[in-house]
Structure formats: structure tokens, C-alpha cells
Design a protein around this nucleic acid. Sequence first.
DNA 1: GACATATATTCTATTATAAGAATATACTTG
DNA 2: CAAGTATATTCTTATAATAGAATATATGTC
Lengths: 119, 119
Amino acid sequence: MARSPTTSDVFNAVAEVQRRRILELLTEGEKSVNQIAEALQFRQPQASKHLNVLKEVGLVTMRSDAQQRLYRLNPEGIKQIYDWSKTFERHWNERIDRLEAYLEELQREEQRKDTDEQP
Amino acid sequence: MARSPTTSDVFNAVAEVQRRRILELLTEGEKSVNQIAEALQFRQPQASKHLNVLKEVGLVTMRSDAQQRLYRLNPEGIKQIYDWSKTFERHWNERIDRLEAYLEELQREEQRKDTDEQP
DNA sequence: GACATATATTCTATTATAAGAATATACTTG
DNA sequence: CAAGTATATTCTTATAATAGAATATATGTC
């Protein structure tokens, strides 16, 4: 079995760094294919291909204006990734909690040492 | 040029749905390779291979206990994905704001119609 | 050391890119 | 309709991955 197609879901679509760059660029607002290609330094066909993948998984929407195709970020798609990653949130928070608890413990030890040295 | 290796970063690593399932399972706590394989219904070699990818990108850590290899979730890796997706947060919030504004506008229109019908 | 348990590695077959080059399509304007 | 502009599609090449099967490695026990 081969790897899942890039169009199978948002996770596969954003695995490609160039497509993440497109999404980041589109936070500035709607852009044409050529604007995207120029800004990110790739050739027009590559821009079209990547945009098509993003469109298929719903990460962008497209509208036509004369010859131009204007692509716009569809944030709902990225929210899927956000929601999934957020389900792990308590795990890294717990880690930070444990680290903070450890640091506080160190401080208490330091203080105890200081007061012990007093007499 | 081919697709980036699955070990190139966390985004490529979690593109595979089976690896996401492993991460979700590991939220329950540290587990051995066989426990993971059994819980997720894949064969031992596949479990080992997926776990190795996750380890290489830092999404899990491993420790040895006799013959067993115990894998544990490393949430920092998922936080990278969370942080990236979170930079788009204002976009889906704005969308919801616009939707709410639109719904309120509809309601006001309904009310205006109702009062117009009164006389 | 022989045997059992737990895990990792290797090999194969199938599938799927991603970039580049060339070409095709769609729309606009003179 | 011819020429120009903007974008999409096709074809090629090189690379990579996933599952399965078979095998190798490491550790524990008798």
C-alpha cells in the first residue's frame, strides 16, 4: 500500500511545506494564481497544482474573475487540524505544570538551605 | 521531486492516519509495541515502523524495559502543529463573527416585517 | 546454551507524489 | 478572428512510502 493521496484529508494536504506557505500567504487575503506563484517563487503550473489540492480538501475556495482565478483561505479546514491538536493540550500543560512544580520545589530547597545557614 | 519523507517534520509524520491513531492511543499513557499493535489491530512490524517514524520526529519517546520497548507521547511535537494552526485562529473567528452579524441582521429584518404588518 | 518472548529490520510489490517542460484551455481586447 | 493574458492539464522523471512476509536481534528463563 502506498502513502495516502494528498487530497485524502487536510492533514495530508498540509504535509507539503509549499502548501503551508500558500495558506500562510493567503492570510493576507484573496490572491490570484500568478500573485501566489510570484510571491512564493514557484512556477505557475506548480502553483495551480498545489492550489487544486488545497481546494479539493476545502482549505481554500476559488472564484473566477475574467481570466483570473482568485483563491481565498477557508479557515474551517485549518480548524480541523487545530481541533485535533488541541485534544492533546492538557498533555503539554501537564508537562509545564510538572516542570513548574519542580522549579518551585528547587526554590523551596534553596530557601531552606539559606535559613539553615543563618545561625 | 518526490514527496517529502515522513520523517522530515511533524506535519509529514501525522499525515498518516495510523500514526495519528497511535498518538491518540498514547494519551492513555505509556504502552509497549505489542499493546499498541493489538489495540489498533495492526501487525507488530507495522507498529514498530510507525513508532520509529514518530520517534524520529520527536512525537514520542521510548524507553527499554527488558525485551519491551515502552513508547510515550511527547506532546511538545503536537504543540508545533497546534501553534501553527493557531496562527489562523482569528480567521475562523472573524468568519463566525460575520455569520453572527448576518443572522442578527436577518432577525432585525424579520422584526421589522412583523411590526410593519401590525396596522 | 536451548527456548520463548518482544521488537526491529529487510525485501517486495504497489501506489503516489512533486517539479519541470510542453501544451491546452479560457477569457479579453483590438 | 488574431494576439495576448491567465490558468490548467499532460507527460516524464526521480523518489518515497505502506503493508505484508520472512527474518534478524535482543532479552529473559529454565
